[in-house]
Design a protein around this nucleic acid. Structure first.
Length: 287
DNA sequence: CGACCCCTGCGC
DNA sequence: GCGCAGGGGTCG
């Protein structure tokens, strides 16, 4: 579900918890947690240390790279830990006050704050989860495989990430190692804005097209954040409010409809196992 | 690289 | 019932 704009909207919606102490964590489904606080490469078996979940710590900072959210916490000894949240397709994070009982289905984790509010992690499909890191510096290593954050990607970074690959540009945009934060919706939208065919080989893109694409990615994501993310079905911000960025989609999920720019019928195909929509007139293959 | 799998829910 | 869905890891 969530791509960069949705995760950034969640990050902003959670900012009110900064400075508050986590007093408890109810782990309702253990298998959504990957505990790496013991330094071993593989998730540890057995019970999860409450401290690894942030219990007894103050929330210091909320950071984001691409589609991942990092909740940085600090315990009374000054030890920093990070709870990395990945939402997968159906993940949600909500901030509820004490009166609300988080009894919805598929709520897997519930953190209790010192002021009785709760932070809930919900994920029906369980493609998402949280990873517990033992120190702030571990976050750099954990995020090392990710490419530059899509919100601020430069044309040079995008060119370097695409390299001389012959795969379709759409597939490359979905590769978080090339650029972090673009998913199926905003890949299609950015390609349409940049007038690039999603099947175009990366190696066939001209420099001016890569420049246009980097700009389109930044612009599409910025506007989507301003609209507080796209709600197709599940997505809600931490206050349970839907976003409105779906109203701005120009090609995504519009196969068979008229292009909003030129009126031609929007086509659909599959690239990298994901449905892909584009306008054959606005987005011609290079010749 | 692409193919396949993970999982639940929803619309047809 | 079946196919599809905003993600991503692993395999060959």
């Amino acid at each position: 579900m969530p791509e960069l704009p949705e995760v950034e909207t969640i990050r902003r919606g959670l900012l009110p918890i900064v400075g508050h102490t986590i007093v408890g964590c109810d782990v309702r489904r253990r298998d959504v947690v990957r505990d790496r606080t013991n330094g071993s490469p593989n998730p540890r078996r057995g019970s999860i240390e409450p401290s690894a979940l942030g219990v007894g710590s103050v929330v210091d900072e909320l950071v984001r790279l691409g589609k991942q959210l990092g909740i940085v916490v600090r315990d009374p000894c000054g030890q920093e830990r990070v709870i990395v949240v990945q939402l997968g397709m159906s993940g949600q994070v909500s901030l509820v006050d004490s009166a609300r009982i988080p009894d919805a289905k598929h709520v897997h984790l519930v953190w209790a704050l010192d002021d009785a509010r709760r932070v809930c992690f919900r994920d029906a499909r369980r493609f998402g989860g949280v990873t517990l890191l033992g120190s702030r510096s571990d976050l750099d290593g954990f995020w090392a495989p990710l490419g530059p954050d899509a919100l601020e990607i430069t044309a040079g970074q995008l060119r370097d990430g695409l390299g001389t690959s012959t795969r379709a540009i759409k597939a490359a945009l979905l590769d978080q190692g090339v650029i972090a934060g673009v998913g199926n919706i905003y890949a299609d939208e950015a390609l349409h804005h940049a007038a690039i065919n999603p099947c175009e080989r990366c190696s066939d893109l001209r420099t001016d097209q890569i420049r246009a694409l980097a700009k389109a990615i930044r612009g599409v994501l910025r506007e989507a954040i301003n609209a507080r993310g796209s709600t197709l079905r599940d997505y809600r911000d931490p206050s349970n409010e839907p976003g409105e960025a779906q109203l701005m989609h120009r090609v995504y999920a519009r196969a068979g409809l008229a292009c909003l720019s030129c009126g031609h019928v929007i086509e659909q195909c599959r690239i990298a196992q994901r449905s892909t929509c584009w306008c054959p007139v606005c987005q011609p293959i290079n010749r």
